[in-house]
Design a protein around this nucleic acid. Structure first.
Lengths: 171, 171
DNA sequence: TCTGCTATTTATAACAG
DNA sequence: TCTGTTATAAATAGCAG
């Protein structure tokens, strides 16, 4: 899909990897947005960057990042190419807009993460958690611990179905 | 990306929508898998089909659905097109294989869901849950309840950032 | 309804600034 | 390090069976 075909294994160069991550993350979120739009379905994605920073996409939720970044060419920051009276003013404005954009992005990302968390919550803990007593919490802990052990061990491949069956009954 | 360009709005025909969903979901999961492989990052996707069925992809986790379903063409069910001695036998076999396939699909789907759940778990509850004491569990419940209330009300749009800030500090 | 086939559109790897 | 461009690889819309 680029100038040449690439091997499907980890990109060794840090810098290239970061670039690849950014581009492909954008592409993935765009695809997710299209899927959500075309098929009217709910979707959530959470991905951690090579640096460990979380990025997320969710639908429904606020307008997807993708669109925001794809369609708003006219929101470009002012260039210092015309009148000179505005030079300093423009610079200041530039700074302010940048900060606003940063905050906006942060808010969007976190909101998406929250939506993701909530969806996961629904998945893991089907019924109202606020009604749980201590005993149930303990039981939940046991269940989650179990789940984690199963996963960490990766030894579950063979008996997956039985374990999974149990889990499935919770939905 | 197909024979002709399509409008980015909900596909009105039910049948077409289902097909589009299946194809694009596969594509999305493949992209996600590539991103995870190329950049060595964790990722989780949960999407609900038009029919409301959950599909999920997670890395790390067990082998992706995509590969499993993409590569096993040879597992097709037998057709009743040849010898007649085997007619009844074939029918029976057919039934059995169908049941196996159903169970396999079910297992695969659940396995995926499990992986997704585990990833979400990491997201919500960063440190080892098995070490949590009762007090911490209670605190966790409080936090989760809070989260749910925020979401259910959807009244959070404006003050999202503050709430979200809290969540973000957990990473 | 599901699987496979291509004409096309879309995503992106390598570059360039 | 970020942003934009372009040649090319990859995804997929509409069909066909």
């Amino acid at each position: 899909m680029g100038r040449r075909k690439i091997e499907m294994k980890m990109v060794t160069d840090r810098s290239c990897r970061q670039v690849t991550f950014s581009k492909r993350r954008t592409g993935l979120f765009k695809k997710a947005n299209e899927l959500a739009t075309l098929c009217a379905v709910q979707i959530v994605i959470v991905v951690f960057s090579p640096g460990g920073k979380p990025f997320s996409f969710g639908n429904p939720g606020v307008e997807p990042l993708v669109d925001r970044f794809t369609n708003h060419r006219d929101h470009q920051l002012p260039r210092d190419n015309s009148g000179r009276r505005s030079e300093r003013l423009a610079e200041e404005l530039n700074g302010i807009q940048k900060r606003i954009q940063v905050e906006k992005n942060r808010g969007d990302a976190l909101e998406k993460a929250l939506a993701a968390a909530a969806d996961c919550l629904d998945f893991l803990i089907p019924r109202a958690i606020e009604e749980m007593g201590i005993e149930e919490l303990v039981e939940m802990r046991r269940r989650l611990t179990n789940l984690r052990e199963q996963l960490d061990g990766r030894a579950m491949e063979m008996e997956a179905s039985s374990t999974l069956m149990l889990l499935s009954n919770r939905r």
